[in-house]
Amino acid sequence: MSNPIVVNIIRFVVLLLLQGLFLKRISDGWDGWFYVHVILYPLFILLLPLRTPRVAVLLLSFALGLGVDLFYGTLGIHTAATTFMGYARAYILNILEPREGYNVNYSPTAKRMGMAWFVRYAAVMMGLHLLAYYSVDAFSPVFILDILLKAAFSFLLSMALLIMATYIFNPQD
């Protein structure tokens, strides 16, 4: 399990299936009343090694989003949001860079960077992703209140799940 490529491929598949087969059911449940999505798959983009080229990050984001869209039947919407988040990753990492800098051989995981840093990083990225997602979902600035409300609730649930997963698995890379 030391090869980061293998690790990331497995993570990609597992998160995609988890999102598409399991987490989708949660948001579909309760006769559609419970419309808030629980989103975990962006964790894959979060945990990509720091030395991953930006082009690769973008293409992987696109592919991941497309995969989720195929499960959700909303072609293009998750793709747009994930691509946006993938593009933003480099800038966010730049802003959150610790004083001693990054070790580019690592992934930005909780184990490497510390829980507080990781939660901050994840919160910004998930926030961007959810805002982008619900914006493309609503597709009009008229629904701005709706967008913000859904993004906020979805953010709380998704972050809770993300932090839980981090505590349970706590991957090194």
């Binding site: 293009g76 793709t79 747009a80 946006f84």
Partner: peptide, 10 residues
């Protein structure tokens, strides 16, 4: 990529 995604969305 974003253009493709939005095109698909529409």
């Amino acid at each position: 990529l974003e253009g493709i995604a939005l095109f698909m969305a529409v």
